[in-house]
Amino acid sequence: MSQPALLRGGGWQPLLWLALLLAAALGLAELEGLFRLIEPDSRTVIYGRAAFIDLLGSHVLLVALAAGVSSLVGVGAAIMVTRRWGADFLPLVSQLASIGQTIPPVAVLALAVPALGFGSGPTLFALMLYGLLPILRNSLAGLRGIDPAVLEAARGMGMAPLQVLWQVELPLALTVILAGIRTSVTINIATAAIGSTIGARTLGDPVISGLVIGNTAFILQGAILIGLLAVAVDSLFEQLQRRAPGA
């Protein structure tokens, strides 16, 4: 694809949002005068317990790990229950995935802390459960929405079942699957901030600290970074969907 075509397709947008995110992570500390207008009576208006760029890295790592595991489990489960030998497990798989999203993340954290301790472990577990359902549902919709005539044609060409899966089914369902992963990741970018309540290093640190001490500037700093990260990642997935096979 030529550069002008890429630009017309909005391929520059993820780069713009990523640049804004990095600029904010590195430059918020330089805007003390601006945040002083919001909190004129506070001694400190810039969150300083950890560098914003470090919190951003920890936040992204948590969300990425959770998304990777949820994607493997969700897509794998969808593949299993759309095979003849696994169709009987469809209701069970759907119900188990639904449980992960009906339980509030705070409750999952509270239940996981006794077993996994404080820090990133319970947060990662909660994110995996909370992000599983959108991926599973979209994977099922994508795989079950393929025209049976296309699958029959692939089998008629002598393709083995695995070849049909990898060369026909997954490419045709990829756009819908990516939409589920996009939803899951975007939700978890915000949800991950709750992990700061149990010691995980996330962009929720300044938000929680601001709520505890009543510092609106801290809250705003965390919210700005979380919002920019969510928009940047959502924009990136939008471009991936546009360029996926079958889009």
Rank of each mutant, 00 (worst) to 15 (best):
P14T: 03
L31T: 12
D147R: 06
A115Q: 11
L20N: 07
Q239T: 07
A50W: 14
A115K: 02
S196M: 10
L28E: 04
R137G: 04
G27Q: 05
H59S: 08
A110V: 15
G33T: 10
P161S: 01
P206V: 11
I208H: 07
L61Q: 10
G68L: 00
L22G: 10
L31H: 09
A64D: 09
I224K: 03
L225W: 10
T44H: 15
I46Y: 05
G227I: 14
R182S: 11
L56W: 04
A160Y: 11
A19V: 11
A64R: 02
V164N: 10
L65S: 00
L229K: 14
L236S: 04
F52S: 11
A126C: 13
G246Q: 09
P91V: 09
G145Q: 01
M80G: 03
Q163H: 13
L26A: 10
A29I: 07
V233H: 06
Q167L: 15
T82S: 12
I38F: 11
L220D: 04
A107P: 01
I103E: 03
L143M: 14
G210M: 06
S139N: 05
L136I: 03
V60K: 05
G180D: 00
I198N: 01
Q95T: 13
L26R: 04
S184R: 00
P245H: 02
D234L: 02
L225C: 11
R201A: 15
V73G: 00
G10L: 03
G57H: 07
L16A: 13
H59K: 08
T123K: 02
G227F: 15
L31P: 06
Q241K: 13
L129G: 04
L165C: 12
L143S: 09
A230L: 10
F218R: 10
F89V: 14
T186I: 13
V212Y: 09
L31Y: 07
L143F: 15
G10Q: 02
